[in-house]
Design a protein around this nucleic acid. Sequence first.
DNA 1: CTAGGTGCAAATAATTTGCAGAGGC
DNA 2: GCCTCTGCAAATTATTTGCACCTAG
Lengths: 325, 325
Amino acid sequence: MDAPLPDLSNLHPVGGKRSSKRDRILNLFLRQEGHLSADDLFDLVRRVDPGIGRATVYRTLQWMVEAGIARKVDFGEGRSRFEPAYRHPRHFHLICTKCHQSSEFLSSDVESLMEEVAASRGFTAAQAVVQIYGTCDDCRTGHKSPPVDGATTKLVFARDALRMAIATERSGLEFYTRAATLAGDSRGRSMFKRLAEEEGHHLSQLEQRYRDLAAKDPHLETRPTFLFFKGAANGLFDAGAERLRHGVNDEQALLIGIKCERGSHQFFKRYGERFEESEGRQVFLEFADEERAHLNLLMKEYRSLRQRQGRRRTRKGVGAAKLTH
Amino acid sequence: MDAPLPDLSNLHPVGGKRSSKRDRILNLFLRQEGHLSADDLFDLVRRVDPGIGRATVYRTLQWMVEAGIARKVDFGEGRSRFEPAYRHPRHFHLICTKCHQSSEFLSSDVESLMEEVAASRGFTAAQAVVQIYGTCDDCRTGHKSPPVDGATTKLVFARDALRMAIATERSGLEFYTRAATLAGDSRGRSMFKRLAEEEGHHLSQLEQRYRDLAAKDPHLETRPTFLFFKGAANGLFDAGAERLRHGVNDEQALLIGIKCERGSHQFFKRYGERFEESEGRQVFLEFADEERAHLNLLMKEYRSLRQRQGRRRTRKGVGAAKLTH
DNA sequence: CTAGGTGCAAATAATTTGCAGAGGC
DNA sequence: GCCTCTGCAAATTATTTGCACCTAG
């Protein structure tokens, strides 16, 4: 649903056209934080290269939007603003109608709801815009909270990513600990135990990393959430752990684990890939890898179990074809 | 989060200003379906009253937006469009970038997510805009689906409302049927049975109503969803019915029922009230009333149970104060 | 050489504003 | 009589276009 992610070096041919001054405009634009109006960008460009005309900036902007490098956003000021879309996933806006400041957030839940809606209408979504207009905290209370620069945004992003990974790790730990207790088969028990230990180990690593991050900014913990990944932020294994309570056999436990690991792997990979280089992205992608490793282990165990059982019945959803990655 | 709902008759003073020609513009505007550009409205107005100037239309539009009667939306065409906001809750847009058609949907889930986000930042939300840009089904396939007029929209809305009420009724029926089986106390059993019968009765009424509605338009059932009230559309009692499986005592069952009925009453009331007069609105509000009646019955039973138990312990969440409506 | 890209200035389009007069209270 | 509304035309603002020229492949 979001923009394609062409390599920066061969970005230019994307639109089918060539480049020269576009490079300079593009580079300046991508370096910018926040939402530039066409004129803002024109001023910036002129400062560097006075020989560039306003029309070129407009044309380049138009081309960038078509090529998916930029996004056009409208805050109802009577002019458009533009923001980089490259490795910078769709984010949503909270726009203060008093002070005209806008802050951003990201929500995978909103995104998936929108995808669902679009799909149900046969609509192919290319872009999504979410804007909430109202009064910001500062304008309402009269206080002024410290300005948030690019570095802080990145810290907050990393913090939120870590929080999600930690929540997932915690619910995974609970899941495997319980599964190890319940497992009827000694081999399965030892595998679940091993996984529980791994989760515990990773968990403490993540927590350490979280503490390191928090040390970089004394206010980090109290800053508002940036990633509203509600469905994921509360532990992707919770439902699985819950199902274990109702008593399942080893095979079922394995299948539940596989489903959870696969879901969480896909989730972290999918979103991680869409971010620009940053610690948050790292957290997502590393975590996705970890979940995949667990997934592989579980699937190996599952195959082996099936073999030992000697049964050849086919189970829906996890056929042999799907097991090979 | 949505616009205030002033009475139409004393709408005018809302903005602190007075009225005269505004009335005519306002009335024309409110009669319109869809999204008018300022110029569209100007043309319309001129056809009725050639003595009205373009600036007045602009000024009136501005005033309507401030007063919460209209919403300004931007589809990236270089000009703004406006839509009535009165008794017409925020709806979201799917905008085709090929044919420039836009269709609408409503999602309570998206709304509550947005409220959550706003609240967590101390942001007071007044308006929300959700736009999904892409290619519509017609443009993608080349086919042309039958045009949807205002009457059809209303039918679809009523259909979706009925579907939600039916789903809730079904899960309620399941809940009470199961509760009746499980109830240890004969008095409780008969109450749950009675509620189950009522739900069954209402369910068949709703299903009949649904059939009547479907008879009005042969394609009604296949038309795309308009209300994406995912959390509610799958039966608000499902979680409650599920909990009954794990074995609960009568008091707990009552509390679960109370929670479910209260939630569903509030949900249907809250959203029903925001719609303009229509069958869909009726469905919502009637259903809300019904759920409240059940709620009252359950609460009466709960109080009586507590009295019979003679226990005076306080349970969190459902203190005596909260029981009196 | 050719298909675009580019600068400049002029054109267009949407919206706002200045001002004199009108209308309600 | 005062305050706001209103129409008209002029002004302002953002964005696009026409056109002559330039540049990369």
